[in-house]
């Protein structure tokens, strides 16, 4: 009994006949055997490609003659000079979509966590359920919703909102499709669940008695939110914004399906360089720079937000 309870938590105890030294050594190896196949898979098909991509980006050549590493760093500079606007647009669209997701997702996560009562599970299913239809089909549905002769456009037009949004370049004066608004709307829609679920998990952990305590101390509801609820939910906010911003900044589907050529994001460029133009060095350089930009933004953001326990 005593021997078992002093063993490290959960570690399987060995059968007696094996000599203790060998048993201990064998047990030390167990985690490595468990890790081996999975980690090998990631090393070969995730890490190696990244390294390979970095090398491709400094190669020159063509499909016919083959590629050689020539340390042609000008690929980066040329690609950046030519597509800097696309990077900027990607980051702006992804940033706006992230802020909108937070604004739309927070009340919903809050309601599910604190106000839903026995409807909680139903609401959670409703948040996840749209996921089950292929997201391409759902994105295409926005073409119907935002269609030029659709309800949304005619209402916005009647209320003269379209004129206002056209003035700041969000839409054109008579349509929403093929404008920045449509792309941002699609991005927001597509990544909303990635915001809501982490928000919900962090809000759900909050003890409701904390709210009562704040109320007992004469905090008004908004003060309670600002001083108690929101700070506690911060890890969820950080996780949610990252899970939204990162995929949104690399996305090309919304820009392709809902936008026009003037809303194209960096993803569209990489995709066409890789799959249509077959200019692999430029595609590699562009995607490497995208990764670098995102890593920098994310690490600065995490440091500012002050949470490092994300996973």
């Amino acid at each position: 009994m005593a021997a078992i309870s002093t063993a490290p938590a959960g570690a399987p105890t060995e059968t007696p006949p094996v000599p203790p030294g060998r048993a201990a050594r064998r047990r030390k190896l167990v985690p490595y055997w468990l890790l081996l196949p999975g980690i090998l898979w990631l090393l070969v098909f995730f890490v190696a490609p990244m390294v390979y991509q970095a090398s491709t980006s400094v190669q020159t050549g063509s499909l016919e003659t083959g590629y050689q590493v020539t340390w042609h760093l000008a690929t980066y500079w040329d690609a950046f000079k030519e597509y800097d606007l696309f990077y900027l647009r990607s980051l702006i669209y992804a940033g706006i979509a992230t802020v909108l997701c937070l604004a739309i997702g927070y009340p919903l996560a809050y309601t599910i966590a604190f106000k839903a009562g026995r409807w909680r599970n139903v609401l959670l299913v409703m948040v996840i359920a749209p996921f089950f239809t292929s997201f391409l089909i759902r994105t295409l549905a926005w073409k119907t919703i935002l269609a030029d002769d659709g309800i949304v456009v005619s209402v916005l037009d009647k209320l003269h909102i379209l004129n206002a949004t056209a003035a700041i370049g969000l839409t054109s004066s008579d349509r929403v499709l093929a404008t920045p608004l449509a792309v941002v709307c699609g991005l927001t829609y597509n990544f909303l669940p990635f915001m809501i679920l982490p928000l919900y998990t962090s809000l759900e952990r909050i003890d409701p008695r904390l709210h009562e305590a704040a109320g007992d101390l004469y905090a008004r509801p908004f003060t309670t939110f600002r001083k108690v609820t929101f700070p506690i939910s911060l890890p969820g906010v950080v996780a949610g914004t990252l899970l939204t911003f990162i995929p949104a900044s690399g996305d090309y589907i919304n820009a392709e399906l809902l936008g026009s050529p003037s809303e194209q994001m960096i993803g569209n460029v990489i995709q066409s360089k890789f799959l249509t133009v077959l200019d692999y060095p430029t595609a590699a350089a562009l995607s490497f720079m995208l990764m670098a930009v995102i890593l920098v933004i994310v690490s600065v953001y995490i440091r500012k937000a002050g949470t490092e326990e994300l996973v």
């Binding site: 980690i39 990631l42 090393l43 098909f45 995730f46 890490v47 190696a48 490609p49 990244m50 390979y52 991509q53 491709t56 990252l242 990162i246 995929p247 900044s249 690399g250 996305d251 090309y252 993803g267 990489i270 995709q271 890789f274 692999y280 595609a283 590699a284 995607s287 490497f288 995208l290 990764m291 995102i294 994310v298 994300l310 996973v311």
Partner: peptide, 21 residues
């Protein structure tokens, strides 16, 4: 860290690099 990284990477970066390989 290695487990976390694929979830923090835009799909296009992973897709393009694996495709290049």
């Amino acid at each position: 860290g290695l487990i976390w990284l694929p979830m923090a990477m835009p799909e296009i970066v992973m897709g393009a690099s694996l495709g290049t390989l």
